[in-house]
Design a protein around this nucleic acid. Structure first.
Ligand code: MN
Ligand code: MN
Ligand code: MN
Ligand code: MN
Lengths: 148, 148
DNA sequence: TCAAAAAGTTAGCCATGGCTAAATTAGTTG
DNA sequence: CAACTAATTTAGCCATGGCTAACTTTTTGA
């Protein structure tokens, strides 16, 4: 039996962790890499704060980080990143159907995305699909909104 | 011109502040008052933490608190409480239409309610109303969910 | 090649919002 | 009305996640 070394608990990821992972994946997908300075600029957070979080994510096994060099998401980190990205995209698509402004959508999605559990994700997915198939109802919704 | 005494800034209310105000209003509406011990039990938070927050809310002008005695929401505090209550109720009604379990709904609403801005509130209100008027689409949504 | 600039890190600070333990006040009851 | 109990407050602690300033490492370009 191996020695009972320090066990790393699952560590339920916070909104901040999800925002970092989501942005890191996006940077990697668009420019091929995610440096501390890129993450900082993109999230409008100081480089020092990013360094701190990146080291924490490394310690939690969500990415591998080499000091002064670069970082790469681990399988676990990428899974989390894809998951939060899916929630972000879904909520954006959904609110877009309702005719809301992009700024409002972005602001609200950025907050809400951290609070929808898997069943709710599936339900909103199903609703979004049905609404896309039946635009008549959306026309009425938008009219109601305007009359307000 | 009056002396430039300590100005109390608007203090953009946090999720925690909203949760406290919402629960305080609910307690007042159901049992007529909201003592520290009631709030603590209801929010599953220690009495010491509640005392702390109640004093902060008093300092921010959201309620009037008399040490060791009782508290009452101010006009500003009650306005905020009613506002968050409305968002809570709306999201609950909306997710209920999608056929989600009450536990899931409560959990997700408790988080999401702090992140929907006024335009989004109005849009989801309009959508909820239209969905209630046209249940056919909801039937399909629920079927889609089950098939997953 | 080597100095300046850019990037990254560290140290130390802060606010928020939790907690427990101990002290204090208020309420109840024999 | 005194003592017990319940309620409340205070003190001191902690984690999270921001910040700035100062320092270090890496990259770049004359
Ligand atoms: Mn976010
Ligand atoms: Mn996002
Ligand atoms: Mn809440
Ligand atoms: Mn609520």
């Amino acid at each position: 039996m191996p020695a009972p070394t320090s066990i790393r608990l699952p560590a339920r990821s916070s909104a901040a962790v999800e925002d970092y992972l989501e942005r890191i994946l996006e940077l990697i997908n668009t420019k091929g890499y995610a440096r501390v300075v890129d993450i900082a600029q993109s999230l409008k957070i100081s480089q020092a704060s990013v360094t701190n979080m990146v080291q924490r994510l490394d310690a939690e096994g969500l990415l591998k980080y080499e000091k002064y060099r670069g970082l790469a998401l681990t399988t676990a980190g990428e899974a989390l990143a894809r998951n939060i990205t899916r929630r972000h995209q879904l909520l954006t698509d959904f609110l877009k159907l309702l005719g809301l402004d992009d700024d409002v959508i972005y602001h609200d999605v950025e907050g809400m995305e951290h609070h929808i559990s898997p069943p709710t994700v599936r339900a909103i997915e199903a609703l979004t699909e049905q609404l896309q198939r039946h635009p008549a109802l959306l026309v009425k919704v938008r009219k109601d909104i305007d009359e307000n």
